[in-house]
Computed example of a mutant assay.
Amino acid sequence: MSIKGYLKDHGICILIFLIGMGITEGIFLLFNVSITLQIFVLTVLFLGLLAAGIYDYSRKKGFYRELEQKLQQLEEKYLLMEMLEKPEFLEGQIFYNVLSEMQKSMNDEIFIQIRKNNEFKRYIETWVHEVKLPIASIRLILHEYKGTSARILKEQMGRIESYVEQVLYYLRSEVPEKDYRIAPHSLKKLTDQSVSENRDSLILNRIKIIQETQDISVYTDEKWLRFILGQIIGNAVKYKKEDSVLRIWSHQDEKHSFLHIWDNGIGIATEDLPRVFEKSFTGKNGRTHQASTGMGLYLCSTLCNRLGHRMTVESKEGKYTEITIEFCDNEYLDVLR
């Protein structure tokens, strides 16, 4: 708050005071009051106004300066009220009380929305678990049948199950600490399991598998990583070409292990590469080929970040796509060991 702004805000009051001083001077002249007394009275009035203005300005300036500084320093602006002290002057107290009531009302509304959101999430989780039961039953029934038609049905059931899993992991990705368990796992075993889970789709689409994953031990969550691999393999199937190949291999250095999943499918457009991990981004492939939700790679990237892994993608349109998952060592993993 500047002095200029303060004087402008109190301009009417200052004008009224000056008019009052003028009237006082007129009365002094009317009654022939001595010049010495006139100067003394007007000086006292002026100094009183000046002292009151300086006092009022200093305490208001202190409050508003603190308000502006804390507002600029805070990243979470909604916590401002927790950092402020109630001012002494009346206007500031009214302002403080209004903000307090607004914050209380906002917190109540946020709590109501969070409760509704949690109830909806619980319902969706329950629905996902319930719908997985008939899916598992249908899979068991289909095991009794052989042939191309049975394999097509198995593939479609696998796609349905994949979409259901997407819903479940999307919900869990927001509060991952309640669901994952970090432990050492063999990369070869995990990739073998993921390929086996998607074998019907891979066989039906005649995709050649080259499995060159080493028996490297990495710290991760088995269930989450298998979901991530399933999504990547599913994308390789969805965006395949003739004579498709899916190659999976790994390597490691002193502090990092790397898992590569490469396919010679239709690839990703260059302009889409920076955005493939964005939520609901479908890109050129999602618009021109099979319908896409834009959630698969977003979930994979999100879950990798939650697990402390790093996912990158490299692609050339019409040639190939390669996704790399980097498993990093850190102090937390040293404690686990």
Rank of each mutant, 00 (worst) to 15 (best):
D108M: 10
K104Y: 08
L80T: 07
E242Q: 14
I216L: 15
S186F: 07
E91D: 02
Y332V: 08
S217I: 12
I27W: 02
F227P: 10
A291V: 13
A150Y: 11
G296S: 14
A183R: 13
P274S: 09
I323M: 14
L204F: 15
S58Q: 10
I16N: 00
T312P: 04
S137D: 03
S149N: 11
E75V: 08
Y163N: 14
Y170M: 15
I141G: 02
T213V: 15
R199A: 13
E66L: 06
Q231N: 14
S217V: 05
E119G: 07
W127T: 14
L187P: 02
N285L: 09
Q113G: 00
G234Y: 07
H256W: 00
Y180C: 03
R172Y: 07
Q38H: 11
K279S: 06
V195D: 08
I12T: 10
H143P: 00
H256P: 00
V44G: 03
T324Q: 08
Y298H: 13
D334F: 03
N285H: 01
K189V: 11
Q93W: 10
L307D: 06
S2K: 12
S2T: 15
D334T: 09
L187Y: 03
N107H: 07
I248P: 01
S257G: 13
L99K: 08
I138G: 00
G20F: 14
I182C: 00
S186V: 12
L336A: 03
C300M: 11
S201G: 15
S244R: 03
L140V: 07
F227G: 06
F120I: 13
W249A: 06
E155I: 02
A291I: 12
T302E: 09
E331L: 11
E155R: 08
K279Y: 12
K208R: 14
I160Y: 04
D243N: 15
C300E: 10
I203M: 00
Q231R: 07
L79W: 03
F95S: 05
M157G: 04
S34H: 12
R337V: 11
Q193D: 15
Q103K: 13
K241E: 09
E85R: 13
Q166I: 11
W224A: 13
E76A: 07
H260Y: 15
S105T: 09
R199P: 00
G147K: 12
H251R: 11
K60F: 01
L153D: 05
Y298V: 04
R226M: 12
L273W: 01
M157F: 15
G318K: 01
Y55K: 09
G92A: 09
I228R: 00
H143K: 12
G318H: 02
H10L: 01
E88F: 04
S315L: 10
N235I: 02
L225H: 00
S162K: 10
N97Y: 06
